[in-house]
Computed example of a mutant assay.
Amino acid sequence: MFYLAIKHATMDFLFAPSPALAGCLLHGMVKALPGGGYVLPAGMHPLILVILRVEIRVCRPGGMQPMARFSLCGGTRESLRAWAAPGTRILTLAVKPGQLRRIVDFPALTIMDSWADFDDFLTGQERGEAARCQARLAETDDTAGQVQAVMALLSVLHQGRAGGKADIVLPPDGFSLPPAALAARFGLSLRQFERRFRASYGQSLRGLRQQLRCSQLMRFVAGRPSGAGTWADVAARFGYCDQSHLIHDVLRFTGYTPGQLAAGVASEDPAFWPYRVAPLHMTRLFGPSGY
């Protein structure tokens, strides 16, 4: 149904979704997290998170809140501070753009900048499969067996919505086209397109374009070669008005200045693990857009 890839320094395993779910989900990752605090970069994709062992907490207005063992996390428009207990191990799967309603009964906008416990939206039959999945996860530390258990649960969710239609999915050239041209391509008025796009992606096209540019910039900063020029040069290369504009965006989406991010990735600091995923793995996990 899926394969397990060769181990990589930043993860335990990279795996493909089962064939039935390949149209909805990107590749998944199983990873042992370093204990302590870290900052998660903003993410454009809804994400299925399964805590296989121990605990994760995230910073919310009311304080640090524990994540449910099975969570559906929405996309985020800002960085997020989190903490993992020593020994925490997770399984994650990103949902492809516009495909969330083939897994659950609500669009990406519903959980943008938030998350939902699976118990909040599972039906009766799905709850039974979730209980079997939890029992399986509790009885084995075998990664292949854990992946199979999670895939079985997600397959049940998908089968219950097999007739559901995907939301708007931008074509490959979509991010470079003006909204009016995209609306015409989908046979919608501009207002209809904007409403459906926000439901599908969780935010406006303009906001997503800003986040996409910074995601591409993060890849460059994380592996920034010597001789790449000043930050002003980098800003011009990526289409920012000036260096301060670049710094503002990187701070918003990562929680770090460009210099802090580059130095942290180059160091041995375990808090920067999200930026040490190999480029090929990053594409499989989050698509060509990155985080």
Rank of each mutant, 00 (worst) to 15 (best):
F2Q: 08
F2V: 14
Y3K: 12
A5S: 11
A5E: 06
A5L: 14
H8M: 12
A9Q: 13
A9T: 14
D12V: 10
L14G: 09
P19W: 13
P19I: 04
P19L: 09
A20F: 10
L21V: 02
L21Q: 03
M29W: 05
V30R: 02
L33I: 13
G36V: 06
Y38S: 07
L40N: 12
P41R: 07
P41G: 11
A42D: 02
H45N: 12
I48G: 03
V50R: 02
V50H: 05
V54P: 01
I56T: 07
C59A: 07
P61W: 12
M67H: 05
G74L: 01
E78H: 08
W83P: 00
A84H: 02
G87V: 01
I90T: 13
I90S: 02
T92L: 13
T92Q: 13
Q99E: 07
R101W: 03
R101N: 03
D105K: 04
F106N: 04
F106T: 02
T110S: 10
I111L: 10
W115D: 08
A116Y: 06
D117S: 13
D119H: 08
L122M: 14
T123Q: 14
Q125W: 13
G128N: 14
A131V: 11
L137C: 08
E139Q: 15
D141W: 06
T143Q: 05
T143H: 06
A144N: 11
Q146F: 01
V147D: 02
V147M: 02
S155L: 15
L157I: 09
Q159C: 11
G164W: 00
G164H: 15
V169W: 08
V169M: 14
V169Q: 10
P171I: 00
G174L: 04
G174K: 01
A181I: 00
A183L: 00
F186P: 03
S189W: 01
Q192F: 04
F193C: 02
E194S: 15
F197R: 00
Q203C: 14
Q211C: 04
Q211W: 11
L212A: 13
R213G: 03
R219I: 04
A222Q: 04
G229F: 15
A235C: 11
A236H: 10
Y240W: 08
Q243I: 09
Q243E: 15
L246N: 12
V250G: 06
F253T: 14
P258K: 00
L261S: 04
V265Y: 09
S267D: 06
E268H: 13
P279T: 06
H281F: 13
H281V: 07
M282Y: 09
M282G: 07
L285Y: 01
G287M: 07
G290H: 07
Y291E: 04
